[in-house]
Design a binder for these strands. Sequence first.
DNA 1: TATTGTTATACTCTATAACTATA
DNA 2: TATAGTTATAGAGTATAACAATA
Lengths: 145, 145
Amino acid sequence: MPDLTHGDDAAAVNSLRSAVMRLSRRLKHQRVDESLSPTEMSVLGTLARCGTATPGELARKEHVQPPSMTRIVALLEAKGLVKLEPHPEDRRQKVVTQTERAEAMLDESRRKRNAWLASLVDGLDEDDWAKLREAAPVLEKLAHL
Amino acid sequence: MPDLTHGDDAAAVNSLRSAVMRLSRRLKHQRVDESLSPTEMSVLGTLARCGTATPGELARKEHVQPPSMTRIVALLEAKGLVKLEPHPEDRRQKVVTQTERAEAMLDESRRKRNAWLASLVDGLDEDDWAKLREAAPVLEKLAHL
DNA sequence: TATTGTTATACTCTATAACTATA
DNA sequence: TATAGTTATAGAGTATAACAATA
């Protein structure tokens, strides 16, 4: 509940937007796993949390159109990171599950990713890092809203 | 200075990455000014802060390759939002400045942008919003580091 | 010889529209 | 008739490589 008639809140919103866009570009560029796009990565993360999902659910969760998710899931399947099975109740749908290989890869790339973010974040003092940690779940909430 | 051997910090880093990527996708999609890409927007913001810059400086600040910035600056110039002048000391370089029209447009689209973000952020309570406000400058620092 | 910016080209990601199969 | 997913196609944005002009 920001008060956008208040200048500081408007400034914060601006700052947020600009920072998120730039950071996302750097994250995308500093891609830890060369063969995986940010969205593919995000899909694997979602599957790790939710366990299983249909392509349609994934598209909605990642805020991507269904045809894009079709492609992403196909790429992940080709890399052996997910498997597709028929839906038990509705033969139109499919069920996407992550493979053990995906889990191993997530562990591996988490290590690399943390190394990169750590080097970036080393320029922050403890206060700033604490603020980021507080805000992370809120940003996630925002991304899901 | 996160301690990445500490599980919570690693989780926070992950959460941050995922949220930033998703939010950026939504911001990109909810583009307030139809005719301006997020990076064009960001360049105008940079110029608004720095006053003036060469294409090379802008490329470095936006973490984009020089040829991409050439294209972006050309698009902005075609829209009458920046002007390019010869560099006074080095004839290889150019100086990019924003026009008055750009300033007016930034004001206009800030209003629209805030309206969208406000609607998104309305689902947050005051605590969460406070956390975001604290974190915004840190995220900016991170994006610049 | 190094640097700034540009041109030409290709790639990645995503979207829209049209289609198939199932409900 | 509506919904889940796919196929075909197009567009936006960025990158790399090769080049021009200037330092």
